[in-house]
């Protein structure tokens, strides 16, 4: 019997809000939106979580921030930006109120801690994609 392998790609339409966020990433700029209550959402919220109002005020935030919590990925998947064991972390960037999920490159699980400072490492080829931030690294070297 011949093998049958069906697959197809998804072709995501991100819309104007996430679209601007991704376009800015290609220019090494991280932007979020400000909610009606003043909270800065990074990644940006398209609609205000409290009221549903469309959010249009943009705020540029820092490329570094604080790890709020994290989880160790001992065996990376083929499509992860890092092909060595790494941490998934919720990172609150400087100037943002909400955390963003991304990868953190450290030598081992022992080098990770909630509250540590990390900074974005940009990919060599900028693209309008979240993987343009290849990963984050501890701000003052490993450990």
């Amino acid at each position: 019997m011949a093998p049958l392998r069906l697959f197809y790609p998804y072709d995501r339409t991100v819309g104007s809000t996430v679209g601007r966020f991704l376009t800015s990433l290609a220019n090494k700029k991280i932007e979020g939106t400000r909610g009606l209550d003043g909270i800065v959402h990074v990644p940006p919220a398209e609609f205000d979580p409290a009221t549903g109002a469309p959010l249009t005020e943009w705020v540029v935030v820092g490329n570094a921030g604080e790890v709020l919590t994290w989880s160790w990925q001992p065996e990376p998947f083929a499509d992860n930006t890092l092909q060595q064991p790494f941490a998934w972390a919720l990172i609150r960037l400087d100037g943002a109120d909400t955390p963003m999920l991304h990868a953190v490159r450290v030598g081992s699980e022992k080098d990770m801690a909630s509250g540590m400072r990390v900074r974005a490492v940009w990919a060599d080829e900028p693209t309008p994609s979240i993987t343009t931030i290849m990963c984050f690294e501890p701000e003052h070297g490993h450990g």
């Binding site: 339409t13 104007s16 809000t17």
Partner: peptide
């Protein structure tokens, strides 16, 4: 056939 200008949330809204 393709609303390339909006996200799913934007389309629904």
């Amino acid at each position: 056939s393709c609303r390339a200008d909006v996200s799913i949330a934007g389309l629904v809204r």
